[in-house]
Design a protein around this nucleic acid. Structure first.
Lengths: 159, 159
DNA sequence: ACGAGATGGTTGACTGTTCAACCAGAAGCC
DNA sequence: GGCTTCTGGTTGAACAGTCAACCATCTCGT
């Protein structure tokens, strides 16, 4: 922990890949977020929450589970869900079986908003990312980041 | 623009890849940012700016160029450079050849801070990403996002 | 040479995220 | 039962980023 020991410097090829990835990801998420906001007044993060809810049993997911499934902090989820609640797309419900628990539940309006917005979103993902990668390449993205997630394991923020 | 025409829905395989990528990227950048902050009081974005400056002729780059090379808005660069200036790692300089131009110039303290922080950063990138991908896979990341950047072309924010 | 428009950069208000502090309920221990 | 500790969730302040408005300078057409 004291001496950095041998720092494993990246080769210049690796550096270039890393940089393209970093900048490209920034530009991509920025653009998707912008399109969703302009078209539907919904941020990309809000949209992702609605997607998770739409797939869940009873359209309900507990806050902590939402947090970990998106790699967001609990406090961030609290704020974002509050916004969605203000929009009328979600309501909070008490969780049976755990007195502390709170679950976010998607409303009918939320489902409708999601369905409308999904066209914009999916079209964007397709145009910007999917059409720029073969199925094999896209699969590489997926598996690499699945490994990253596994490496990070439970070391995610809990504030 | 009116009818969404045919929305190109993703296959479920594509969806899984997309989601792993999204969540994994969030977790990865979050972790790298955290390590840099805790170890060196520098955000990942600030660090990236210092890297660009360290590679530039005279350790100086114009604000707009910095913005486009990082896919950040100009206003964002203004704010971030101001922070770096407050830290003493950067100073602003008038740009010869263009009266409007301002260039960020890295100071000696900035170079030192960058060198120290680079161990943490590179070690993190290696541990979390590089060691989770073969060279070929890493290259795929790079080329895919290079294509994404090309697709986005000059449609990046300019505010 | 001059006006119209594009580009470069900053500012200030607003929105979103983080962080630390906090309360409430659950779980484990004796 | 009554501690202690851990987990779930919220809160409010501080901080980072966006957005729109703004001024200055450069560019180009005429």
């Amino acid at each position: 922990m004291e001496t950095p020991a041998e720092t494993p410097w990246l080769t210049s090829t690796q550096q270039i890949s890393w940089r393209d990835y970093m900048v490209g990801t920034t530009a991509l998420t920025d653009q998707l977020d912008r399109e969703l906001r302009e078209g539907h007044g919904l941020s990309l993060h809000e949209y992702e929450i609605l997607v998770r809810l739409s797939e869940a049993e009873g359209n309900a997911i507990r806050m902590a589970e939402l947090a970990s499934s998106l790699s967001h902090s609990r406090s961030r989820i609290t704020h974002t869900v509050s916004r969605l609640e203000r929009l009328g797309y979600v309501v909070r419900g008490q969780c049976s079986e755990d007195g502390r628990g709170v679950s976010a539940v998607m409303t009918g309006a939320g489902r409708t908003a999601l369905q409308v917005a999904s066209h914009t979103h999916v079209e964007g993902v397709h145009r910007l990312l999917v059409s720029n990668a073969s199925d094999a390449e896209l699969a590489v993205l997926g598996t690499v980041f699945a490994r990253v997630l596994k490496t990070l394991g439970r070391s995610r923020p809990t504030a």
